[in-house]
Write a protein that binds this DNA or RNA. Structure first.
Length: 809
RNA sequence: GCCGGAGUGGCGGAAUUGGUAUACGCGCACGACUCAAAAUCGUGUUCCUUCGGGAUUGAGGGUUCAAGUCCCUUCUCCGGCACCA
């Protein structure tokens, strides 16, 4: 009898599938389309570990199940290969990024292939291929033409180790998202995409997405919409006006002082001579603090009086103007009206500097700041006794009359900084002409090819290594034909990934990024499977670009990803995050070389727990999934080794129907772990049945063939092999998902639970369809139950049809 | 601090609308096969127990004939954001 040997069968089938192209997608209108996508990976030098594999496994199960359900499945794969990790890897290993990516991609692809994932490799894309980034540049120009890409000098996050600026989204707790070093602020002229123009739509459209609440909430918080008003405070002795943003205009009568951020442009003008030195010292001191220090919320607030006073527009009170670094220059107007009675930060500041506190909303806690009070107004002149809600509206509308206030909405989200001072990215297709200024590279001159250069090291002077390449920089102006210079910054890697899902619909198109028809056919993505790490980066950027495309009439949908599925993280067996530095990673390569096979790894990835919950990898558990597959293999071999018979039984089809139903329902609800458990139960049942039935029977063949089909999405290799051994034609992976006969599940008897006061005391077996009266009698007649009921008055009998009877005594 | 998720055996986890808590797997124990071991097959396995039972889904209350599931209070862990006025 042949032994189960994954090393033998897995490569064989992988080769056959690729040769026969059974996973290729075509624009076939006869079947419903299904676009299943996993985020296209970064082919870094590190080997994939079982955590990454889980992501692709989930996608593959969804894709395979959909295919067996008769859907037309697009399940593509490609490489997000621009960006820092790839470049740093290349520098570290002293090879060119191009070469590093080619090597890594080859290796990564092998790793994916040996897991038996059903990708349509004919659609493979690589974001660093000029044929691809040509269109990334095309999108840049589209945004530029629409006024959504602009250049601006401002203070930006700068990573001193990676020597490039970073987007806000790429700074995590004050550290560079890639290398983990502390970031700094640096004033540089940079390119931005105007995502803030889309803030409201990006927020509103979240409601209709089938995404987890966790990710939706993260995006909502990141966009950070606040409704309120902008209010102008005139200075007491100067013509200048300080504009503030507030969400609580109802508390204007409680504004007892104002605070400007140290970087506020008015600071120099309004500071009085007497306070000049003190203010300058404070600003210097504040600048000396690292940006990380400034962001610590629990640090004691500091500030300094400017000597200037402003006039509160609601009551003409003169209030002092301070500066303090707890006010952020980048949010709102960079200035606030301070209402210590109703804001904790202002309260703390007022207490420290002995500034007046005036309560304007009634509440019961006089010794602290009451921030979210809604109540009756007090100390607010004509507005007294109004609700804060009413006061909010009336004060703004009254101030509006003399132009001192207006409704205003603020967002926390900032424009997306996309220029990078690094080599390995798509060049920004812009030419700087001394005469014509900033000029777009004409479309027919795309791509602006990234030149091959000798040294990729970032220079750290605020310009990319491309600035050292005269052949690249020097060009002619497309407008005037005179000498001009190319932009030397490259684009953030997230630009490439903001549209790649569209390219898969039409990957070889040389005339346009994608054809409308193909995009219309495949998009939006039906199932997008990935980790939560993309929540406020890729997933936000891709939504933004899709909306721009929609506005441009290039696509007919506003959201790229209908359903988002976040897989849970796989932790190391010690319960910690897997990382190379901790040395606790588990890689499929090593599991394969231990003889487990891709099938049992895949099974383990899902059987370990719900796909969207994290779980620690279990080395012993691998033995269990391997044993399970081996037991399936053995059953088929035993069946094949005996004569075919016509014996029929009731039990076999019934067990099969039960398992098919359970597995199908679980698959439908993505209950992969329980679907596998149902198949394990079936196999356990078959092991019992082979003792009492003839394993050579035709019924057994049906049962084993069905089992193989049910198992096929999880364990594609062994099932393909057994499918063939059982004498079936074609591939199990394009066979129809099995159905079951509900009639087989009807039994002659049923088991009724008998409870006394809600506690289970007995089980009784009664004929199917037995009436409530007969069940009550049968229960009362039960030896144990009659014991309990003896001498007791039954107050109530609760009967749940065909399930349970409860005597309340 | 705010937001999101989760707490069930020795371990990973299971449990339609509230209706037999602990499916399935791991681990462990015992048995069969074997000269022996591995592999394989089988049996058992929540805890306590005076063997009648009793207790049990992070903790404490509540609703109900009946609560892992619903309500209130509370604790712990994980993830995200963090002086956003």
């Amino acid at each position: 009898m042949k032994r189960y040997n994954p090393k033998e069968i897995e490569p064989k089938w992988q080769k056959t599938w690729e040769e026969q192209g059974i996973y290729r997608a075509s624009e076939d209108l006869s079947k419903p389309k299904r676009y299943v996508l996993e985020y296209f990976p970064y082919p870094s030098g590190a080997a994939m570990h079982v955590g990454h594999v889980r992501n692709y496994t989930i996608g593959d199960i969804v894709a395979r199940y959909a295919r067996m359900q008769g859907q037309n499945v697009l399940h593509p794969m490609g490489w997000d290969a621009f960006g820092l990790p790839a470049e740093n890897f290349a520098i570290k290993n002293n090879i060119s990024p191009r070469l590093a990516i080619d090597q890594n991609t080859k290796r990564f692809k092998e790793q994916l292939m040996q897991m038996g994932f059903s990708y349509d490799w004919s659609r493979e894309i690589d974001s660093t291929d000029p044929k691809y980034y040509r269109w990334t540049q095309w999108f840049f120009l589209l945004l530029f033409k629409k006024g959504l890409a602009y250049q601006q000098e401002s203070l930006q996050w700068w990573c001193p180790v990676d020597k490039t600026v970073l987007a806000n989204e790429q700074v995590e707790a004050g550290k560079c998202w890639r290398c983990g070093s502390d970031v700094e602020k640096k004033a540089l002229k940079q390119w931005f995409f105007k995502i803030t123009d889309y803030a409201d739509r990006l927020l509103g459209d979240l409601d209709d997405l089938n995404w987890s609440d966790a990710i939706k909430t993260m995006q909502r918080n990141w966009i950070g919409k606040s409704k309120g008003a902008e209010v102008d405070f005139k200075l007491a002795d100067k013509a200048d006006v300080i504009r503030v943003f507030t969400t609580r205009p109802d508390t204007l009568f409680g504004a007892t002082f104002m605070v400007l951020a140290p970087e506020h442009p008015l600071v120099g003008q309004i500071t009085t001579t007497g306070q000049k030195q003190a203010v300058e010292d404070y600003i210097k001191e504040s600048q000396a603090k690292s940006d990380i220090e400034r962001q610590e919320t629990d640090r004691e607030k500091t500030g300094i009086f400017t000597g200037a006073h402003a006039i509160n527009p609601v009551n003409n009170e003169k209030i002092p103007v301070w500066i303090a670094d707890y006010v952020l220059s980048g949010y709102g107007t960079g200035a606030i009206m301070a209402v210590p009675a109703h804001d904790e930060r202002d309260w703390e500041f007022a207490k420290k500097y002995k500034l007046p506190i005036i309560r304007v909303v009634q509440n019961d806690a006089p010794d602290e700041a009451c921030t979210h009070d809604e109540g009756l107004m007090i100390n607010s002149g004509a507005y007294d006794d109004l609700s804060s809600q009413e006061a909010r509206e009336e004060i703004v509308s009254d101030l509006k009359k003399n132009g001192a206030a207006d409704e205003h909405v603020n967002y926390k989200i900032r424009d997306w900084l996309i220029s990078r001072q690094r080599y390995w990215g798509a060049p920004i297709p812009i030419i700087h002409c001394p005469k014509d200024g900033v000029v777009a590279v004409p479309e027919d001159q795309l791509p602006v090819v990234l030149p091959e250069i000798e040294s990729y090291e970032p220079s750290g002077d605020g310009r990319s290594p491309l600035a050292r390449v005269p052949e690249f920089i020097n060009t002619t102006c497309p407008k005037c034909g005179g000498p001009a210079e190319r932009e030397t910054d490259t684009m953030d890697g997230f630009a490439c990934s903001s549209w790649y899902f569209l390219r898969f619909a039409d990957p070889q198109n040389e005339k346009e990024p994608f054809s409308r028809e193909n995009a219309q056919f495949w998009l939006p993505v039906d199932d997008y499977i990935g980790g939560a790490e993309h929540a406020v980066m890729h997933l936000l950027y891709a939504r933004f670009w899709t909306k721009v495309l929609y506005d441009e009439g290039l696509v007919s949908f506003e959201e790229p990803f209908k359903t988002l599925r976040n897989q849970g993280m796989i932790l190391a067996p010690d319960g910690q995050k897997m990382s190379k530095s901790k040395g606790n990673t588990i890689e499929p390569d090593s599991l394969l070389s231990q003889g487990y096979g891709a099938d049992s790894i895949r099974l383990m990835e899902l059987f370990i727990g719900p796909w969207n919950q994290s779980a620690a990898w279990s080395i012993e558990g691998m033995g269990g999934t391997f044993r399970f597959l081996q037991r399936v293999w053995t059953l088929v071999q035993e069946h094949l080794s005996v004569q075919v018979s016509d014996q029929t039984t009731v039990e076999l089809p019934r067990a099969l129907a039960k398992a098919t139903k359970a597995a199908s329902q679980d698959m439908h609800e993505l209950g992969f772990n329980t679907a596998i458990a149902a198949l394990m139960e079936l196999v356990n049942e078959l092991y019992k049945l082979k003792l009492t039935t003839d394993i050579g029977s035709k019924q057994w063949k049906v049962a084993l063939t069905t089992l193989v089909q049910l198992l096929a999405p999880f364990a594609p290799h062994i099932t393909e092999e057994l499918w063939q051994q059982l004498g079936n034609a074609g591939s199990v992976h394009v066979s129809d998902w099995p159905s079951w006969d509900e009639k087989l599940l009807i039994t002659d008897t049923m088991v009724i639970v008998v409870q006394i006061n809600g506690k289970v005391r007995a089980n009784i077996e009664v004929p199917a369809g037995c009436s409530e009266g007969d069940i009550t009698k049968a229960a009362q007649a039960h030896e144990k139950i009659s014991e309990y009921l003896r001498g007791q008055a039954v107050k109530k009998v609760v009967y749940v049809p065909n399930k349970l009877i409860n005597f309340v005594i």
